[in-house]
Amino acid sequence: MVAPALELRNVVRRFGSVVAVNDVSLSVARGEFLTLLGPSGSGKTSTLRLIGGFEDLNSGAILIDGQRIDHLPAYQRDTATIFQSGALFPHKTVAENVAYGLRMRKVAPPDMERRIAEALDVVRLRGFEQRYPAQLSGGQKQRVALARSLAVRPAILLFDEPLSALDLSLRLQLRAEIKRLHDELRFTAIYVTHDQGEAMAMSSRVAVMNSGRIEQVDAPEKIFHAPASEFVYTFIGESCCLPVEVGPSGVADKSGALLPLHLGQSQPTGKSRLYVRPSRFRLAAEAAALPNRLRARVHFIEFLGDVYRYHLKAGALELAADHPGAIGVKAGEEIDVGWRNEDMSVFR
């Protein structure tokens, strides 16, 4: 059996009384692009820094290709990081930056020239060899950082939110480029981000982190469609939460008032939270045939470009439903909203 490219076993990292990484175990196969996704403070960056060797773990083990590396200092680990700030050496040219890791690995000069050229080719920065980082744009800097890390051909590439300092269009462009590079070169990557779009678009698998723990590791589609926890559900994509209480006489909102809500599948009595994504709601006539239906009042309507977003209220419930066109209902009027069983997640 082939050892995984990277394996984390029960890794714990504490800062004072705060447990930043709490018993994290993870296995990453060679060539996989795994994203650590989570809000800030969820432990994703700490996990990455533990792998890179910039932090010491309190307990657990980290293995690369089956070998424990958690006792090694950063400079003896076969990982390479692309930092959020790029962290290019400002006193070195682009070529010198890319050469740095190769020099440290004592790569012979002719070989080195070739590998620098290759790396710069890959990130489409040939011709920029003699520039200093201060003479590059933000996107170019990150591509040099990428080239610098790729050039050393590490066992694992670590991305520490490399695109978060860039503006949106550049972010999308570079995101596609990293994806293309991964498809071409099949490197093993751990990618940290708080941007779920990035995570969905690039990853073979996504690990959603919360409060130092991994909530779910799965393919992006699974994460999106079959969230393992309420946290994952709410963190990924948009969702509406309908807090309800099922009683013998019907479904009530949190104030106890009965709702004009019909559920297709019977729910156990007691409090629960129903989640539906705004894009999965159907309105007016389209709602009629659906198993779950709610009579709600239109609060206000937003035009979002592709869709109209109807903000609805029913009792104490508030929800947003997207519809591709206008349906001739004004604010204050009542409307039916419906959804399929498979589009609803219930947590209690």
Binding site: G53, F54, A74, Y75, F83, F89, G101, V152
Partner: peptide, 17 residues
Amino acid sequence: DKRLLEASADLGASPVT
């Protein structure tokens, strides 16, 4: 940028280097 030190270590340079 303190990350420069990490970047250097990350690329295989010892603290002295």
